[in-house]
Simulated assay, not measured.
Amino acid sequence: MADIRQVTDAFAVAAQLSEEDVAAIAAAGFKTILCNRPDGEGGPMQPKSSAIRAKAESLGLTFVALPFSGAPTPEIVSQMAHVLNDAPQPVLAYCRTGTRSITAWALTHAGQGAGEEIVDAAAGAGYDLSNIERLL
């Protein structure tokens, strides 16, 4: 089973998922899987998002692909906010380690005056986002 790290009641992150993880994710109550990892980034052994999508959809989950590399751009942050607002919750986002997913999630809150709360929520899930607190 994937190492799922709950950030809020509506959002969690994980490292790379496999098809085998999807049934347990559905059983855990997640409604949407959000993929932030480009296919092939980890080489040919990395599970394809299309296979994870097929398994997720066969179990009634929503699957959204929003892959990106490096720091999330303003466009990615905007698209992430749209997904988080519109997709059935709770949402489980994944990438290679979970870091880019939680960073994009945090940046969707930029300008809302909740920087310390966002950094604390990330820290509770095991991610240090103190370096971007000033952006939040």
Rank of each mutant, 00 (worst) to 15 (best):
Asp3Asn: 13
Arg5Leu: 09
Gln6Val: 15
Val7Phe: 14
Thr8Gly: 08
Leu17Thr: 04
Leu17Trp: 03
Ser18Tyr: 05
Ser18His: 01
Asp21Ala: 00
Asp21Val: 11
Asp21Cys: 01
Val22Cys: 09
Ala27Tyr: 03
Ala28Ser: 14
Ala28Pro: 13
Phe30Lys: 09
Thr32Phe: 00
Thr32Tyr: 03
Thr32Arg: 05
Thr32Cys: 02
Ile33Ala: 05
Leu34Cys: 08
Leu34Asn: 10
Asn36Asp: 05
Asp39Ala: 07
Gly40Met: 02
Gly43Leu: 10
Gly43Tyr: 11
Pro44Leu: 00
Pro44Phe: 11
Ser49Leu: 01
Ser58Asp: 15
Ser58Ala: 15
Gly60His: 11
Thr62Asp: 01
Phe63Ile: 12
Val64Thr: 04
Val64Phe: 04
Gly70Pro: 08
Gly70Met: 14
Thr73Val: 10
Pro74Met: 04
Ser78Cys: 06
Ser78His: 06
Met80Trp: 05
His82Trp: 14
His82Pro: 03
Ala87Ile: 14
Pro88Glu: 13
Leu92Lys: 01
Ala93His: 06
Tyr94Pro: 02
Tyr94Trp: 13
Ser101Asn: 11
Ser101Phe: 10
Ile102Cys: 00
Thr108Arg: 07
Thr108Cys: 07
His109Asn: 11
Ala110Leu: 04
Ala110Tyr: 01
Ala110Glu: 09
Ala110Phe: 05
Gln112Thr: 14
Ala114Leu: 15
Gly115Phe: 09
Glu117Lys: 15
Ile118Lys: 01
Asp120Gly: 05
Ala123Ile: 12
Ala123Arg: 14
Gly124Thr: 10
Ala125Arg: 13
Ala125Ile: 07
Ala125Gly: 12
Ala125His: 12
Leu129Ile: 12
Ile132Trp: 04
Ile132Lys: 09
